[in-house]
Nucleic acid binder design. Structure first.
Length: 420
DNA sequence: TCTGGGGTCCTAGGACCC
DNA sequence: TCTGGGGTCCTAGGACCC
């Protein structure tokens, strides 16, 4: 009875819950959070889901609904969500050190079966009482089934905010309710391929021989099926794995058709990417840049390309990374297109303290100084306070729009909520 | 007018080596 | 007429996740 189970804690409509935290009057009102540039809906309160608004719906398609139903709309405020996420994870950490932070709003746990019920109740209460963040929990023999259990808790609006399944008949009962594409690891394309092969449900998937699945659908699908049968194939990862790539990309507020403005955007994005790299104490061995036209404007000429530039030795200073990114941009830029998006990727990352100094190319103390100054000023006075002149100063058509962003309540002194 | 961003892993195929 | 085999590494593309 003391076997170990896996739990998944999942915050309800996380971005919406974060917005409601400082606007409690919105608790039972319809609320939606938008992607960058206020383009798509990326988080919906239950009320908005009940209106039939799907994840990723372009905002312009639901303008009327927003008006007629009085949906409260927020631009995304990732500084706020990131900070609240850290607080949630700290609270969860008090219940078990055997925990994996899986995403901004989810964490896996290992817990003893005889303690599961009690722990779930405590976790639900703690998240709500201390942070006003509602969570749901699924508990099962492995990650895939814990995900499935969480999905059922969400779909069925159970009286409890958690569901514990361990016996085979309990597992089958929830698998019979779960659509194939809701299985963790089975996305839309794979579900279509499986269905064409006559495999239409999680129960059908789990009954197939390992060898057959591996051969026709790959090793990951075979493992997923094994987890549906109750074996453990995906372990808990307490230590975050070292990151291998880092990307900073944004769609532009307005399309850009000329080199100088594109260079501004690339300079800005490379500056941001380099700052992220230093924050994580990593260095990159190459930088690449991609540019894209607007794929939704089918009548306009389309173009997409990318190029990379090797950084030797590995580096994390802003100036050389920006120079490398601009060289890569020069190789792919073509006149005559309206560009909608670009991105800067830093590849083959290695920990700062494991890099080999190059005998022939000494580190440039000036580059180091510039990076350090930017980090200090931007930490103290807010992101974007000290930038390179190459990013441009005004009329940045490329800069994204966020018309309805809430305040950065917890990460900017000047935006602290006020109690009157 | 208006359609997100940031990751990971697996696989197949080609280059290269012995 | 007859033209190897096996291994590694790298990359691009495709799938998945939130």
């Amino acid at each position: 009875m003391n076997s170990k189970l896996t739990a998944l804690v999942d915050a309800d409509n996380f971005y919406v819950s974060c917005e409601r935290l400082f606007r409690p009057e919105l608790r039972r009102r319809p609320v939606a959070v938008l992607s960058n540039n206020d383009g798509c809906v990326v988080a919906r309160s239950q009320e908005v889901k009940d209106f039939g608004v799907k994840m990723g719906t372009p905002v312009y398609q639901i303008r009327n609904l927003i008006k007629s139903r009085g949906i409260h709309v927020f631009s995304s405020n990732y500084e706020l969500y990131g900070d609240i996420s850290n607080r949630v994870m700290r609270v969860l950490g008090r219940f078990s050190a055997d925990r994996e932070v899986y995403s901004i709003d989810e964490a896996f746990f290992r817990l003893r079966q005889d303690q599961a019920e009690n722990l779930c109740e405590q976790i639900v209460s703690a998240c709500w009482d201390w942070l006003s963040i509602p969570v749901k929990i699924g508990v099962a023999p492995n990650k895939t089934l814990a995900k499935a259990a969480t999905e059922i808790v969400k779909q069925e609006k159970l009286s409890k905010r958690f569901l514990i399944i361990s016996r085979p008949e309990e597992i089958d009962e929830i698998l019979k309710k779960l659509p194939l594409e809701e299985v963790w690891g089975i996305g839309g394309r794979l579900a279509g391929k499986l269905k064409r092969a006559g495999i239409a449900s999680p129960m059908a998937l789990k009954s197939l021989p390992e060898e057959y699945l591996r051969h026709h659908f790959g090793v990951v699908t075979a493992r997923t099926a094994a987890e549906l049968r109750g074996s453990v194939c995906f372990d808990l990862e307490n230590q975050p794995r070292p990151q291998k790539n880092l990307c900073y990309s944004r769609s532009f507020g307005q399309c850009i058709d000329n080199g100088p403005e594109l260079r501004q955007a690339v300079t800005d994005y490379a500056t941001e990417a380099a700052a992220k790299l230093r924050k994580q104490h990593l260095k990159a061995q190459s930088v690449s840049v991609f540019i894209l036209t607007d794929r939704f404007k089918s009548e306009a000429p389309q173009y997409a390309n990318s190029a990379s530039f090797t950084l030797t030795p590995a580096i994390n200073d802003t100036l050389p990374i920006v120079r490398g990114a601009l060289k890569a941009l020069n190789r792919v830029f073509r006149n005559g297109y309206a560009y909608k998006k670009c991105g800067v990727l830093l590849n083959r990352l290695i920990p700062e303290d494991q890099t080999q100094p190059d005998l022939f190319i000494p580190e440039n103390p000036r580059d180091k100084g510039v990076s350090a100054a930017m980090d200090i000023v931007n930490r103290r006075y807010g992101a974007g306070s000290l930038v390179l002149a190459g990013s441009g100063i005004r009329n940045q058509k490329w800069r994204m729009t966020r018309r309805c962003r809430s305040a950065r309540y917890t990460t900017q002194w000047s935006e602290l909520p006020q109690v009157k």
